[in-house]
Design a protein around this nucleic acid. Structure first.
Lengths: 222, 222
DNA sequence: ACCTGAACACCGTTCAAGT
DNA sequence: ACCTGAACACCGTTCAAGT
């Protein structure tokens, strides 16, 4: 498959990797499967990528290109809400990316560019540097956790439960009664948004407490 | 190793699995490694556990035994803060557990018991059922995301970065200036607590808006 | 520079057999 | 019931060789 192009390059390798991970899950992405999809010998890939780990880094960073850019004209909190909703949607579309982020710190150029944008917006809102750094980390963590939660419960990837029976009304009446509510929330974008908004509202109070700053935004101050 | 006991059982298998995952990472936990640590043939394990997936489920649920129980006498928000701090510490001590939770929905008996406790506490605080379910999910998601963040950055498991250079002052002045701050926050329990408290504070407002309820809260008591 | 082929040290799991 | 042994269809990666 994918034949014809003749020559292999990094973008083609990354694209094929994402396609395999989307179709069959990250656990089924192997260098050998990838090679056969590219009609090439496994070792050919090693000429473009040092090892599988580097391939995963490239997948995670490269896919951030698809993120809708932050809208600078909007209020800072709704701009951030949109940005992280974009993250969440990206991770739902490509569950492998969220998984990769939990195993390898993402430090590629696109990831750093997004981080820079977020920190700039928080700073312009009047939030001090330390709080901004902390806010960035907490919001990213929440977003990744919520995305993993939804993808791990998406019908297509559920492992068949065997050992454990269903949740019983006798042992856990509340959890039992809320079973269907929780199942619905697990596939609901509104559930993600609710938590995100609660975090943003909390940082809004930090912003209000600080003196508003002009958005000139010159770097780490000289 | 681990010889002498003569007979294999599920607790021994689970304990050995955790020991391997703690020492060498979940990615190095294999049925064959596990078998050799138990001085047994790989196939012997399959007599106690259906497959590797079930083994992972058992590891994740069984380890929840170590969680400090929720202190019912404390105010609900500080009780929940303690409980989830306990989760966070458990995941830091055993990074494999947080990883497993992102791949397989945790529905074992201990997980359900913890969920029941949390829902009961939220309800007794005067939070309605739908909000309680949503709060539970968001707080768990945040906790898992934050735990994964810290473990993925723990010095012992960092993959050597190759493709991407260090973050440059020219391209990302803010991110560059905050590099050391962010690195410090990545290993700081206070960073986790800050985000957790912001979420709890938000739900405290829901509780205040609702009529307070007597803490009759039947169920797992008795 | 870019790719192939053979090989090494691993995987999870099935199936048949032993006690 | 509990365990072994051999086998199957896979892995990631090194090394030497081809063009």
């Amino acid at each position: 498959m994918e034949a014809g192009t003749g020559r292999l390059d990094v973008p083609a390798v990354v694209a094929a990797s994402l396609a395999i991970a989307d179709a069959d899950g990250l656990e089924n992405l192997s260098m050998r499967r990838l090679a056969s999809r590219l009609s090439v010998t496994p070792m050919a890939i090693y000429h473009h990528v040092r090892d599988k780990g580097e391939l995963l880094d490239l997948m995670a960073d490269e896919s951030l290109r698809a993120l809708p850019p932050l809208v600078a004209s909007a209020p800072w909190d709704s701009a951030l809400e949109d940005l992280f909703l974009g993250f969440h949607r990206l991770y739902l579309a490509h569950p492998a990316l969220a998984q990769i982020m939990t195993q390898r710190p993402l430090e590629g150029p696109h990831a750093i560019a997004v981080g820079e944008q977020v920190l700039t917006v928080l700073s312009a809102a009047g939030i001090d540097d330390d709080t901004a750094a902390s806010a960035f980390i907490s919001i990213v963590n929440y977003t990744i956790g919520a995305s993993l939660y939804r993808t791990s419960r998406s019908s297509s990837r559920l492992p068949e439960r065997r050992r454990f029976g269903r949740i019983s009304a006798a042992d856990a009446p509340r959890a039992h009664g809320l079973r269907q509510t929780m199942a619905a929330l697990a596939v609901d974008e509104g559930q993600f948004l609710d938590g995100l908004r609660r975090l943003l509202a909390s940082y809004r109070m930090d912003a209000a407490a600080a003196p508003a700053r002009p958005t000139t935004a010159r770097a780490p101050a000289g």
